[in-house]
């Protein structure tokens, strides 16, 4: 079972929900939490997991072989990303601009641009209490988030069985990394807050999730802080509201200290429990 947790806007409580939900479910079931917000992975600040394994994640980039190159510069023409430049009788490669499309390499008449792996980020596998936690972390300045997200998901597929509940913490927004993070989820939870900003960004996230034809539901975080417009919208659009996490100053304080909230606040735990029930029911195709 794959559950993706996403939100149109940052700061709505996506990481709070994913860490608390994962730890809660982990009390009785086999769970892996996967942080796919590879540009800003923050989940481990709350989990303090023990590192089990760390792997370098690579992307394939061309290496210029000056011995066989005839300096025809076809490669520069064949690259749509400006990742190659012909300058002073040399071909320069800019790894962070390369999308690993292989066009320069495979179309090179003399085979002078063999593709070779280069580190783009790291994947870390932690044990945090009862759960496994996997994090992808992109190097600063690297832009191919989509590729690292795909590799992180692949690692999870290879290392965990069908029975394990997999919770993906997606990056915020609606751009290509988000699509990669949620495209093979069985169910998507969209986290929002009951404010005009929250509602506006939720509508964008809903649009994205619908394009991908995903089953989804909404969790309203900081419930009670703003107005009812998010609820009205969900009812009108027939979107299930999976849970309403109350707006509590204590919760914000616990969060600021990097603590898990459900262990300390009963009302919060009750909502997490509710969300867990809803999600499992949805994944099994029955309404709770």
């Amino acid at each position: 079972m794959k559950i993706a947790i996403a939100s149109g806007k940052g700061g709505t409580g996506k990481t709070t929900l994913s860490t608390n939900l994962a730890m809660f479910l982990g009390e009785h079931e086999s769970v892996v939490l996967v942080d796919l917000d590879v540009e800003e992975p923050n989940s481990n600040l709350f989990l303090n997991g023990e590192l089990l394994k760390k792997e370098d994640k690579m992307k394939m980039i061309p290496r210029w072989d000056s011995t066989s190159c005839t300096l025809c510069a076809d490669c520069v023409q064949n690259c749509n990303f400006n990742a190659l430049l012909f300058i002073a009788n040399e071909i320069l490669v800019f790894p962070n601009l390369c999308h690993s499309c292989y066009a320069c390499s495979e179309l090179c008449p003399t085979g002078s641009l063999p593709m070779e792996p280069q580190k783009m980020g790291e994947l870390s596998h932690f044990i945090a209490g009862n759960i496994d936690f996997v994090e992808g972390r992109l190097n600063i300045g690297e832009e191919q988030a989509v590729s690292l997200i795909a590799q992180t998901k692949k690692y999870v597929d290879q290392h965990f069985d069908e029975e394990t509940i997999k919770i993906f913490d997606a990056p915020p927004g609606t751009s290509c990394p988000v699509i990669e993070a949620i495209k093979d989820a069985d169910f998507v939870i969209l986290v929002t807050e009951p404010t005009p900003f929250g509602l506006h960004d939720l509508t964008l996230a809903v649009e994205t999730t619908r394009i991908l034809k995903k089953n989804f539901g909404v969790v309203i975080n900081r419930y009670g802080m703003g107005n009812d417009d998010v609820e009205t919208y969900c009812h009108h659009e027939n979107i299930p509201i999976l849970g309403k996490i109350p707006h509590l100053v204590e919760a914000a304080k616990l969060y600021s200290e990097g603590k898990l909230i459900y262990k300390e606040i009963l009302a919060f735990k009750a909502e997490i429990q509710n969300i867990a029930l809803h999600v499992k029911a949805h994944c099994q195709g029955v309404m709770p």
Binding site: F81, N82, A83, L85, I87, A88, L92, F94, L97, E143
Partner: peptide, 15 residues
Amino acid sequence: NQEHGAGPKMAKAMA
């Protein structure tokens, strides 16, 4: 108007 790689292209033009 390039999406990416304006800097190195400009540097090459200067060279």
